[in-house]
Design a protein around this nucleic acid. Sequence first.
DNA 1: CGTATCCTTGATGCCTCTCAAGACGGGTGG
DNA 2: CCACCCGTCTTGAGAGGCATCAAGGATACG
Lengths: 256, 256
Amino acid sequence: MLATTSSLKRIKIAKSVDDPCFPIACSDCGIYNLCKAVGGEADLSLLNTLVKNRRTYKRGEHLFSVGEPYRAVFAIRTGSVETSVLTDDGRVQVTGFHIAGELMGLNSFVANRYNCEARALETTSVCEVPFERYEELVKTIPGLQHQMLKIMSMEINHHQEMMLLLGKKRAEERLASFLLNLSRRLKCHGQSDSELKLSMSRSDIGNYLGLAEETVCRVISRFEEESLISTQRRIVRLNNLDRLQAISKGIPANPK
Amino acid sequence: MLATTSSLKRIKIAKSVDDPCFPIACSDCGIYNLCKAVGGEADLSLLNTLVKNRRTYKRGEHLFSVGEPYRAVFAIRTGSVETSVLTDDGRVQVTGFHIAGELMGLNSFVANRYNCEARALETTSVCEVPFERYEELVKTIPGLQHQMLKIMSMEINHHQEMMLLLGKKRAEERLASFLLNLSRRLKCHGQSDSELKLSMSRSDIGNYLGLAEETVCRVISRFEEESLISTQRRIVRLNNLDRLQAISKGIPANPK
DNA sequence: CGTATCCTTGATGCCTCTCAAGACGGGTGG
DNA sequence: CCACCCGTCTTGAGAGGCATCAAGGATACG
């Protein structure tokens, strides 16, 4: 079997793509869940081979770079990954953080080359599903491409939210949105939604949110002053999810 | 036939999805091209029915709104459309402008409801391909879903560029990027790439680019002072594409 | 235990927003 | 055909949020 009973017990399983956690929650890695969702009768031996194709990246190592020929889709087992795009003059925009259980690199597969950079934020273990095997899977499992559309559709939704954040929100709203988003995704893995262990630096967060590193620090300090969160370096504890939610939506301060 | 010989002569046809103009350039409307690209042997009578499903929207009219059940994918024949998303507190972020020949509304089809608003910027004629018929097409034409993946992949690329623009670029870089992008897309239709007729207001542009309406005006004025462009209300003439390109990439002013 | 990296806080300045007022142009009705 | 009106565009003045520059402190790692 792909997942032991124990791991199945520990981790919430997304039953279908309509589950808000899909494709985040999974038993062993995202690709298993992806396949499971579309065809219970899938060739399990093939699947087994695919998900056994594991690899570990050290902090800072690149999973892939811009323009590199498409190699595989990645399902993160443990650790986390940062994706980014570049301007011609060398500026970098972080486009996303991907945590354990999530799929990555799907969106560039049609173009045959990667459209962004992916860098491990910490020691990260992934299942790499090679491109060619993926094609096999698509033939074997009729609904698979539809699932991929769904995942890409979710990604587009997220991008739209990011455009809104970058285009319209103020610093505090951005950081609150960021923390809540991470919290929600961690919760989908059965992890705590109020005690976050950030794997990225303040600088990375700032880059992602279109803010300077210093601004991120200042907002974090401000949140801590108001007891909305408690921090200790990269450990962040969310003490008031409701208030953070309000802030993220741009609802002005309402003292008591 | 779907397109008369005369119209075929007038307009450049994108031969495959690898054409940089795809899915922009098309003979009659995008959906025809989409189908043609994936299967020359497609059921033309079905296709014919689909593309005949035309409708015209007046300026300001909504093609669809957020949360509305998914109805159709839209191929714009003439005119232009603006898409936008909303914050909970009512702020609006324009996420894109769609011009004649482009496909729209593909990305929300998997979710069964629209994830954004679409509003006609001017009198706009579209082919509406109903959801159910689309499903038929998918069954008839094996490669169709792959093409959809490709289109969504392109959309994701564009979103990444927008995130970079909104997160890292300064006002002048944003506007230069915007003008050049529009120019490129118009060129794909055989229209002039240096004489643009904007269908959106300064306010719309500002919203899209994460700028205030006044800032857009000021930057336009500055560009005009430097003879990079000439404007007359919504008519914009690009006089120096190279310089605009340089500005859009953040290359600092280099006065001779 | 030294060093590099990351985090934090302060001071200063600038880019862009906001508020405001006027100009321009297109559309409409008399 | 003209005059009016309203939406859009433009420009100015002022304010403010955030970036930048700078320096010190904390933590992790070899």
